[in-house]
Simulated assay, not measured.
Amino acid sequence: MKLKYKGKTKDVYELEDGNYLLQFKDDVTGVDGVFDPGANTVGLTIEGAGRAGLRLTKFFFEILKEKGIPTHYINADIEQATMTVKPAEVFGKGLEVICRYRAVGSFLRRYGLYAKEGQPLDAFVEVTLKDDDRQDPPINEDALDMLGILSKEEYHVLKELTKQIGAVVKEELAKKGIDLYDIKFEFGRTGKDKQIVLIDEISGGNMRAYKDGNYIEPLELEKMFLA
């Protein structure tokens, strides 16, 4: 295996067959020791977070596979905290796509003049650039096209996939009485036809979820959901 990239929450290795191996770590994003899925720094290390994130990720990726929704997922090894995936090319230097169902986090910080905390949102899709130095700035469809990051046609595919996948996750969580407030996805292009697919993970570290109005920590979410 050849190490290709050391990330905040996982490392990426290239396999001999051309596929990639993601090694999930126990580091999670946050600030001053407090978890925050929207943060661009590692805030703390939670023992077992890597495997917990992978368990949820495997669960959701296999549901998406059954539904015919395109992802880079091949298989996962929970004990080793690894996931084998198809190679995918990211947009520019990386985008994060957030689907918001409630006004919390950075949405509330930016739009608090108009939004109330916890206010329902209709699957609002927001794209940000992965750029730690500039605090992951939001970017819109026109700018993405003008800067050559992705075309307007690709943007619409990205937006529809985000809503579709977000709805699947929200529905599954609701079966356990869990309310999804927002979730963060990453996408890439794969294969000769440059198909847009979901990449990275779907875990507690990428979402804000609540039960009976109380926030659920990522590890607790995994326990509660897969119990």
Rank of each mutant, 00 (worst) to 15 (best):
P137W: 11
R134N: 15
R189F: 10
Y111C: 00
L161N: 12
F91G: 04
I165V: 14
E186M: 03
T84G: 00
A174Q: 15
A88C: 02
S106K: 12
G118F: 03
Q164M: 14
R100A: 06
L150T: 02
A103Y: 09
D145R: 04
I165F: 09
A143L: 08
L158Q: 11
A123Y: 13
G94P: 05
D133G: 00
V104I: 15
L95P: 02
Q164E: 14
V104L: 15
Q135S: 11
L150A: 01
R189H: 07
F107M: 14
D122M: 15
P87F: 07
V169I: 14
E186S: 06
V125A: 10
V85N: 02
T128C: 15
G92M: 05
G112R: 04
G188N: 09
E160Q: 11
V168I: 10
K130M: 04
K130S: 01
L147M: 14
A167H: 15
L121H: 08
F185D: 09
D136L: 11
H156Q: 11
E141T: 03
V90Y: 01
D142K: 14
L180E: 06
L121P: 02
R100V: 06
E126L: 12
L161Q: 10
D179C: 03
A174I: 01
D182E: 15
K152T: 08
L147W: 12
L108I: 10
K86A: 13
K159D: 13
R100H: 08
Y114D: 10
G188L: 05
V85R: 02
A143N: 03
F185S: 04
V169P: 10
V127A: 00
P138N: 04
H156G: 03
V125I: 15
